[in-house]
Design a binder for these strands. Structure first.
Length: 564
RNA sequence: GCGCUUGUAGCUCAGCAGGAUAGAGCAACCGCCUCCUAAGCGGUAGGUCAUCGGUUCAAUUCCGAUCAAGCGCACCA
């Protein structure tokens, strides 16, 4: 960044103030090829001012530029190409990383503002599928990223522990359930009842009425209903937590939908006071015509509440509790409309802070091209995927590194890491069809590739012994392969910034691959542990790579074993 | 019908908020371990950047239209 400004200033000086620093800054680009330098200025915009071809202007600019502090400045066609002083630049970057360690890349974008993140949010009595993985893993990574940018994230697991489906579940349990069966295998048994309910329900729609009645009882605090509900919830949560542990993710709050049960009257009252509620087809709605949206259904004909009513209560509660700088919802793309409605209703209520609510949508995971559906039993169990991945990692270890210590832990790190990384590697909004082989792949642009690169770096450092790199006088590096690594290293802070601004963990995932690639290339080309005057600099670079790779993986929620 | 999202190599995807010959990974074929972990490195092959217009010195990138796919569109969440 500093360097870019230096380059821009050089251009400004050479053009006698024809262009402002900002103008030049926005035009300066990074060439894609090594031999075109580190920064380039395209001279096209000057052709109007000087009434000359840009190909003529470029060499004239080079004449006027003070080449001090650069390895070289040259004109190629209409471009002025700048080559940084590699030795001093690399020395500075490496020294900074070694000094800041995992604090490298930290920045103050958030001024310690609170950011509740609504994430994961599985439904009670249903298994976690690959769809929940996305929300969990994206939310977790965003939390880490926000923390690094000096926000204070609050991870909220907004459990789906309320709603008509509990009426259905209770009805199903009353009809076909056995306590013993549920105790043995809670989730799968409850799921079985739920799926069965929907099968029977097709032919006996009157079951729906029964289910609705049970939910109504639940909302009114009926003892039997409440006890069953509590039991289902406890069992489910126990199971969910085992998966979260495997993923290495925890939450600051498990306040789910039921938590807002007693906070909805206030919302309804407020809406009434503000004259926003209308009756329509026997239900209570808020008209959102002027936002170009469908009306928001606040209360059903039978008087029970809906999803959006609870979300309104939750939004208000979060505002009061956290006085948030931003409030994020990591929820699938298919719910975009719901969040537009949510924000619109809050706006209608006069809450300006609705502008700080952001829906972070992500693409749909399908299986065999079809949408996953709990009701239809078309699900991919997250548990199975994680187990498969870890098993595969164990096999790889047995094959490639049988003497490895902590085999089981490393297999967990690598297997789970592969699954998480696969999910975060691509842009959030991309849909993808689930393919186990692809998810648990360990070669190519994958999590294990990055982990492996880190492990290799650590291995070199181990062999180097105790060297005080922090206080060493670095000579700097200037060969082509190390230059690519240094450039990548210097980009890390900017990548963190972009990932935070775009709420996009994939920025970091892709960056970590790029850094790994440049490092592996370097590794294949240069022997680090050779005694000469650049050895300390090479080691400093290897140490920096290890730090930044580990930190990148951490921001994604992936562990980086020292050996694998 | 309306809204949101997407359309780049056989497959999966990048392309830094317009620029110099469009890049990876996988799959295919061919090389590289007496040398710091071959979960690696290198090479070959593969593209009218969905189509048509517009803005610009310059468009895969911005705007509009068309086509195709996915997802939504009141008593599920």
């Amino acid at each position: 960044m500093e360097q870019k400004k230096l380059v821009a200033q050089a251009i400004v000086d050479a053009t006698d103030g024809q262009l402002s620093l900002d103008e030049v800054m926005s035009k300066i680009e990074v060439p894609k090829s090594y031999d075109l330098g580190d920064y380039a200025f395209p001279a096209f915009i000057l052709s109007k001012v000087y009434r000359k071809a840009p190909q003529q202007i470029a060499p004239e600019l080079v004449e006027k530029i003070d080449q001090d502090g650069f390895d070289k400045v040259e004109a190629v066609g209409p471009y002025v190409n700048f080559f940084l002083d590699k030795k001093s630049f690399s020395k500075n970057v490496l020294a900074a990383i070694l000094q800041k360690k995992e604090g490298y890349g930290q920045q103050d974008l958030g001024h310690a503002g609170n950011v509740p993140i609504d994430m994961s949010s599985p439904n009670i009595a249903k298994p976690m599928s690959m769809g929940h993985l996305r929300s969990t893993v994206i939310g977790n990574s965003l939390a880490e990223l926000l923390k690094k940018a000096n926000y204070n994230p609050i991870k909220i697991n907004h459990l789906g522990d309320w709603g008509t489906q509990f009426g259905k579940l209770i009805e199903a349990y009353k009809l076909w359930g056995s306590e013993e069966e549920v105790r043995k295998d809670p989730i799968n048994t409850l799921l079985k009842y739920y799926v069965h309910f929907h099968e029977v329900d097709e032919k006996q729609p009157e079951l729906d009425d029964e289910a609705r009645a049970w939910f109504k009882k639940l909302e009114n605090g009926d003892e039997e209903a409440t006890n069953l509900w509590q039991w289902f919830r406890d069992e489910s949560l126990k199971f969910f937590k085992s998966i979260y542990q495997k993923l290495g993710i925890d939450f600051d709050s498990y306040n789910g939908e039921s938590f807002y049960n007693d906070k909805m009257d206030e919302i309804v009252d407020l809406l009434e006071q503000k004259n926003l509620l209308q009756e329509s087809r026997g239900a209570e709605i808020v008209d959102l015509e002027k936002y170009g949206l469908n009306p928001a259904l606040i209360k059903k004909t039978d008087g029970t509440t809906l999803y959006i009513t609870r979300d309104l209560a939750a939004a208000l509660y979060r505002y009061r509790t956290y006085n948030f700088a931003q409030s994020l919802y990591v929820v699938g793309n298919e719910q975009t409309n719901h969040f537009k409605q949510l924000k619109a209703v809050l706006k209608e209520m006069g809450y300006e802070w609705a502008d700080n609510i952001h829906h972070i949508p992500f693409g749909l995971i399908t299986s065999g091209g079809k949408k996953l559906s709990t009701r239809k039993g078309n699900i991919i169990l997250l548990e199975d995927v994680l187990n498969d991945a870890v098993d595969l990692a164990k096999k790889q270890i047995a094959e490639k590194n049988p003497d490895l210590p902590n085999k089981d832990q490393v297999a967990e790190d690598v297997g789970v890491g592969a699954v998480i990384f696969h999910d975060l590697k691509n842009e959030r909004l991309n849909n993808f069809d689930f393919n186990l082989e692809e998810v648990v792949r360990f070669e190519g642009e994958t999590g294990p590739y990055v982990q492996y690169s880190h492990a290799r770096a650590m291995s070199i450092l181990r062999k180097a012994g105790n060297i005080d790199l922090e206080n060493a006088q670095l000579a700097g590096l200037n060969d082509e392969e190390s230059w690519e690594v240094v450039r990548q290293l210097s980009n890390f802070p900017a990548m963190v910034g972009r990932a935070v601004e775009e709420y996009e963990p994939s920025v970091i995932a892709k960056y970590s691959i790029r850094l790994s690639k440049s490092f592996n290339k370097y590794y294949a080309h240069t022997k680090v542990l050779t005694d000469d005057d650049q050895k300390d600099s090479r080691l400093a670079m290897v140490a920096s790579v290890a730090i930044v790779l580990k930190e990148s993986l951490r921001l994604l929620g992936v562990n980086a074993p020292n050996e694998m």
